[in-house]
Design a protein around this nucleic acid. Structure first.
Lengths: 243, 243
DNA sequence: CGCCGATTTGACTCAGATCAAGGTTTGTGG
DNA sequence: CCACAAACCTTGATCTGAGTCAAATCGGCG
């Protein structure tokens, strides 16, 4: 009898093939054979409490992680001590790709709320890539996604006004809700205003004022962390995705 | 007798093992066996003239490219038409990693001056990754580097003042000159002010004024595209790398 | 209830954008 | 080789989006 049936409830052996996030997570697009192989390597560490770090700048890179529940932010630290949040990671999204240069992480990854992750050990992924033809492409896809996200954020920080940035952020949130089959027009923000501001390269006060302005304009409804999008078209128009 | 000796001068079969950039390029850290294998897959397309595109947003991704000579910029295009330069690529530096999600590029890559590149076809790299154990790590390293660069730029755009940005840019240039065993304190910029401004998220006028200011302060000497760094310490102090 | 951190709001300020104009360099065709 | 146009770069004057500072309010939670 396998020991798997006796493990602690907090450390249930996860299974990608059984996971309801399998279509948007690491396993996206993988066939049954590949899924079975992935099931073998995936592990699930202890859940993280709010503010716990999954890894820190300088830690040895041993795995890629997928968020299973909760939300994890990744941030860069500068020479003079201030931080730039470079990503918020929701269930099904991957992190850990920073730190592939010298096998040392270059970001801090911190839980915004109680969160759990799945762990894909690099060493075992490496073997899988040799054994399974599609696995390499999968790894490329994952890293490519990180690059594309970063590029979008660069465009946002380099070229958009504060109003455009917040609208873009809300649309991105809404889009990710849709992917997860949650309501696209009503969701809770897992991060404080301060983190939104940091991520979008602006001051908290500006975020607050813009939420108020969008609410006045009947574009959204804000109640603390709860957001209801009333006029998706107008949001799209603000970021220039109209016509 | 090999046909290699008879090819057109513009299409010389390149060799990583013979290349003077081998230590900082794709081949960085590879052993002799790996180098020999890389020599087989690397190709060299026609040189690019100034303003030629190596690839465009939407093109099929078929290869990773290494700059051999010249300089290539990559840029993101936004919905409403403006562009953000996300990287300048110098000899030995790689590009093409955008576009690994759906095998379609998401950036434009354009030559700033007459440039040549080496081409590493993805399909052949994939085979190499199965055959050679170290090759996978190499691919990871390359993509990781792109991610790290992007993160640094995010920090710059999100948190730095115009002065800090330009100082940071100059230090980065100097650092890359050193890697290439060129003078660390005297070099030519291959890009116009407009591109520097775009890359750093500011107006051309601000770049121009800051160059003038740095020159007044005897930190650098500027003569059109030629930069001489007079006081490296002060540049470091500006970006906060001193304390 | 009372404290503390998160958020909002208002008033003021400023870094850097924009606008405008002039100078310089490069490339082109005659 | 020169004339002219088109880029490119600089400098000055002005304006403004968003930051900073200050203070009030809200919401949880022990």
């Amino acid at each position: 009898m396998s020991t798997l049936k006796h493990v602690d409830a907090n450390h249930l052996k996860p299974s990608c093939s059984q996971c309801n996030l399998r279509d948007i997570c690491f396993s996206h697009g993988m066939d049954d054979d590949e899924l079975r192989n992935l099931d073998v390597v995936v592990a699930q560490p202890k859940p993280l409490h709010k503010n716990d770090y999954l890894y820190r700048d300088g830690d040895k890179t041993v795995a890629i992680y997928a968020v299973r529940s909760g939300c994890i932010k990744t941030m860069m630290e500068s020479a003079n001590g201030d931080e730039q949040i470079v990503g918020f990671h929701f269930p099904g999204e991957l992190l850990g790709v920073d730190g592939f240069v010298n096998d040392l992480h270059t970001c801090n990854a911190q839980a915004l709320e109680t969160s759990s992750v799945c762990e894909f050990p690099l060493e075992q992924l490496e073997s899988l890539c040799v054994a399974l033809p599609g696995m390499q492409k999968q790894m490329r896809r994952i890293m490519g996604k990180e690059v594309n996200n970063d590029h979008k954020l660069l465009l946002l920080l380099g070229k958009m006004t504060a109003e455009e940035r917040l609208a873009s952020f809300l649309l991105s949130m809404s889009c990710r809700m849709t992917e997860r089959h949650w309501k696209e027009d009503k969701f809770n923000l897992s991060m404080p205003r301060q983190d939104i501001a940091n991520y979008l390269g602006m001051a908290v006060e500006t975020v607050s004022r813009l939420f108020a302005a969008f609410q006045n304009e009947k574009i959204i409804e804000v109640d603390r962390r709860s957001i209801t999008i009333l006029d998706m078209q107008r949001l799209r128009a603000i970021v220039g995705e109209s016509e």
